[in-house]
């Protein structure tokens, strides 16, 4: 394992919960790993599986999808759709053996800055253990 390896992680964060939670973690000066790059979406239901697949195939080492806890969605039911889509994506990747562990879904509410700190750090660690995304080895895909 390369000790200096800093993974590139793309996070799709819902505007109302997770993004605000991340913001709170920032203002509270918590330790957020530098590996995560955040893309704000209005609802986690906006995260098209194609966004995630494209991110993965273009070489991101990990993809984090984050949204409000089920039942707390700003738009009532958006995150239930996210959950189904995530399960679908996870099943596809698992079936094809395309390390599905590089893609994950977490519920983080606006007040859960410590949880945001915890999950980003944990995920970064687990990606570090897995090493760089193998699509870099398979250049001509």
């Amino acid at each position: 394992m390369d000790k200096d390896f800093t993974p590139t992680i793309i996070g799709f964060l819902c505007n109302w919960c997770s993004y605000t939670g991340a913001d709170l973690a920032g203002t509270a000066r918590m330790h957020i790993p530098p590996s995560i790059r955040i893309i704000r979406v209005m609802c986690s239901g906006r995260i098209d599986p194609l966004f995630v697949l494209r991110t993965y195939l273009k070489g991101a080492d990990g993809v984090m999808m984050m949204g409000c806890h089920p039942g707390d969605c700003h738009y009532q039911k958006g995150n239930y759709s996210t959950r189904r889509r995530y399960v679908m994506l996870d099943t596809i990747l698992k079936t094809l053996g395309l390390d599905e562990k590089r893609i994950g879904l977490w519920w983080v509410s606006a007040s859960e800055a410590p949880r945001y700190e915890k999950v980003t750090n944990e995920f970064t660690e687990s990606i570090k253990k897995m090493g760089p995304n193998p699509v870099f080895k398979e250049i001509f895909i």
Partner: peptide, 28 residues
């Protein structure tokens, strides 16, 4: 931008993305 990162690219690009994406749309 892709060549900058990977140093090579299959042409036409995105064939794997197409199959994976189509799978996420209709395989169920």
């Amino acid at each position: 931008s892709e060549l900058e990162h990977k140093g090579g690219l299959k042409i036409p690009p995105g064939t794997l993305f197409y199959h994976l994406g189509r799978m996420s749309h209709m395989a169920v």
